[in-house]
């Protein structure tokens, strides 16, 4: 999965920063317009998938290493459920954001912000993980047969 076309390379380099920026816009502007964590996560992941399609999976993996993606995956889920637990600790119901701050509306705003951020990071990490695993499956050494890896002696 690697393309040596200079037009594709240059245009993808031009496209990737706006895609990332648009993902952040969708993430943090979801309160006011269409959008939110799900859409933002998918758009964010699509930037890395485009990079992987043009520059190869191995190069892309050096940009987003496996542990970083897994941290994002687990961290997002923990952030979401952690906000719920914080509501419990502060004396409300699970996932009740009103108790997160002194003012109920401020608490709701903070809660929605954190929860949407958790959703975004889980979705982005999941999409990157699934694509990289599927597309890079043939590259893994577990796939290669013993006959190929050993030198032919005769």
């Amino acid at each position: 999965m690697m393309v040596y076309k200079s037009i594709l390379r240059v245009s993808s380099k031009l496209l990737i920063p706006p895609i990332l920026l648009f993902a952040l816009y969708v993430q943090f502007h979801g309160d006011f317009g269409p959008g939110g964590g799900f859409q933002a996560g998918v758009i964010f992941a699509s930037a890395f998938i485009l990079y992987a399609l043009i520059f190869g999976i191995d190069t892309a993996r050096r940009v987003v290493t496996g542990w970083a993606v897994r941290l994002l995956l687990a961290g997002g889920a923990l952030l979401y459920s952690g906000v719920g637990v914080a509501g419990l600790v502060l004396g409300g119901n699970y996932l009740n954001y009103s108790v997160l701050a002194d003012d109920a509306l401020v608490g709701q705003h903070l809660g929605i912000f954190l929860v949407e951020f958790g959703v975004g990071s889980v979705v982005a990490a999941a999409m990157i993980t699934i694509f990289f695993t599927f597309a890079g499956y043939r590259n893994s050494p577990g796939e290669s047969l013993p006959e190929e890896s050993g030198p032919e002696e005769d």
């Binding site: 979801g30 309160d31 006011f32 317009g33 269409p34 939110g36 997002g76 889920a77 979401y80 459920s81 719920g84 699970y94 996932l95 954001y97 509306l105 709701q108 705003h109 809660g111 929605i112 929860v115 949407e116 958790g118 959703v119 889980v122 979705v123």
Partner: peptide, 22 residues
């Protein structure tokens, strides 16, 4: 609070469902 009601429903009123989706 948010002007987008969809966000209010997804993240706050139905936060538990969204947690399940995540």
């Amino acid at each position: 609070g948010p002007p987008n009601i969809v966000t209010s429903v997804l993240a706050s009123y139905r936060g538990y469902d969204t947690l399940g989706e995540v």
